[in-house]
Design a protein around this nucleic acid. Sequence first.
DNA 1: TTGTAGGCGTTATCAT
DNA 2: ATGATAACGCCTACAA
Lengths: 344, 344
Amino acid sequence: MKINTTISEIAKIAKVNKSTVSRALNNSPLVNGETKKKIMEIARDLQYFPNSLARGLINRKSETIGIMLLELSSLKKTLFIDILKGIESACVKYGYNMLIASLSEQREERTFPFNLIKCNRIDGILNICSPYSLNGFSNSCIVDHPVVSINGITKDKNKYCVNFDNYEGGVIGANYFIKRGHSRIAVLTGNQMFNFFKERIRGYRSVLIKNNILFDKNLLQFGCFEDEIKSGELSTYRLLDLPVPPTAIFALTYELAMGAIKAIKRRGLEIPNDIDLMGYGCNELNNIQHFPITTILQNPFALGFTSCELLINILNRKEITGNLFYVPVELMVKAMRIKKKVYV
Amino acid sequence: MKINTTISEIAKIAKVNKSTVSRALNNSPLVNGETKKKIMEIARDLQYFPNSLARGLINRKSETIGIMLLELSSLKKTLFIDILKGIESACVKYGYNMLIASLSEQREERTFPFNLIKCNRIDGILNICSPYSLNGFSNSCIVDHPVVSINGITKDKNKYCVNFDNYEGGVIGANYFIKRGHSRIAVLTGNQMFNFFKERIRGYRSVLIKNNILFDKNLLQFGCFEDEIKSGELSTYRLLDLPVPPTAIFALTYELAMGAIKAIKRRGLEIPNDIDLMGYGCNELNNIQHFPITTILQNPFALGFTSCELLINILNRKEITGNLFYVPVELMVKAMRIKKKVYV
DNA sequence: TTGTAGGCGTTATCAT
DNA sequence: ATGATAACGCCTACAA
């Protein structure tokens, strides 16, 4: 495996100084057109590739970011892969590379990703958290290192987090129902200790307040985590059995919505005539196209892209205002009616 | 974000030359015990981390390998994640890092991973192929670069490939049946244009020959790819309807075995009393523990680990004999009887 | 055992 | 517009 071409070799052939070669290759205006052309030609002929280690050494950066994961297995989830694709897209755009910096079980040191910064292997870290993590990354993250957390939560103004705009998702969902004339809007949620549920509900409640609708806690149903579809179904029965049942149900996950559909169907009701229903997010199979009901859509690709772009801006010392960023969600309205027979 | 400690700083504090520091940090015997101790102490206090760019520049290696994937989405599959875990394990063992070098749709240049070698960002490439690829990596791989292909096929003696030992899997499976007294052993396979099917069948047939059993082509049933379980079921019906049906069925995938179970159950037969059955590999959910029948087990973690270790050996110019390597498979015998009621 | 000097391949800062 | 020289942080002959 032969040694690579260097600027010195090119310089020798072109009969110029290597600094001229460097300038030519870096598109400096301080170089004669003819000279530049000649140099570029030689570089192409010799298949010159700049040594990124030498470059990084003098520029004090590796142009590589570390992807920090609690475990590689997270990548099995479509959500994480889509986030990763967004990250990759931003990396391609800005010429960065991606290093896997997962906290594998085999590594004793939990500071591994940060050590990678210290030894100049990576310039910064994208910390991909699980939405189901409770403490965000506060305990694992060393301040003063360039780190952006995806799905993370923090109260530290020095730590950057990018999330789906869960609050806005709650607002959009509630507003949609209100515009359709509903005032008894139920919510199917998971455990509120998870930030994203809390935020969605916060958004929903803010809309109620704005519309002078009293919050009825009977309309807020908590599902268990083990069998979300089942618990969505059971919660829906409870809602339908209320003395004054809701006219609309806002299911805060795909699975809860599936359960709700099941219950509504079993009761012989129709969506949206008898009761209106909205889902949230998409499922693992990403088959949102076939999901029959109106839904709040999240864009994991955008989440990854935005986060990565933020990190790169931080690395390039761009002015950043704020430390918490939110990726917009959108409403996907499904006009079709859901009749009982559809679900037989 | 402060500048990192360098050996020069340590040298100044320790009142020695920086080359002495370098020697001390690299465990050179050419340094006094006392001096070394002092230097190590200062290094710890100052949180010294060697600059890997400077190190790589002089050592001509980055100690990073590129993980080459056709697309990131491959990682959704448990098989690939397990391979990746094996790779990571070897990387941790040998102090290497993993760079994602996927051929994303956004990149025009298909030579991207090889360019990463040329610019010294990575030392070599682990090319993770799909078992369902037809041409291996022959068209994408530049000879004379350190590349090891996982699941790849090649006839080029200069290219390294590591695979599950599919041939041996066929041998083990057939031998197991023969030891149990079977001589009419059917095979459920997918399309033989895929190398791994071809190899498994080759192993199976070699055992028949050794045992003087004539190969009956009626006992070789091909399934279609779209609905493997269904086609496994249909193939099994065909087998059971033969004038002289087989006494054992060797299903070359998990899905084909599932279909076979279904057919056997429907016909009111029992495993292994009425007919013997063996599966191959494990399914995406990796729930092999619960898979009820005797199976040829593959170890994707070992595949990843072995491949990565091979690549690192190549990088360190170890003597390598051969270019094709096989990761052993093993037989997992399930003793329990499968009765009809189990599957109701 | 330690110090000196040179080099890895770039880029940056001088000067010309 | 170009050249000479130093510097990035580390390693390694060679000299002492």
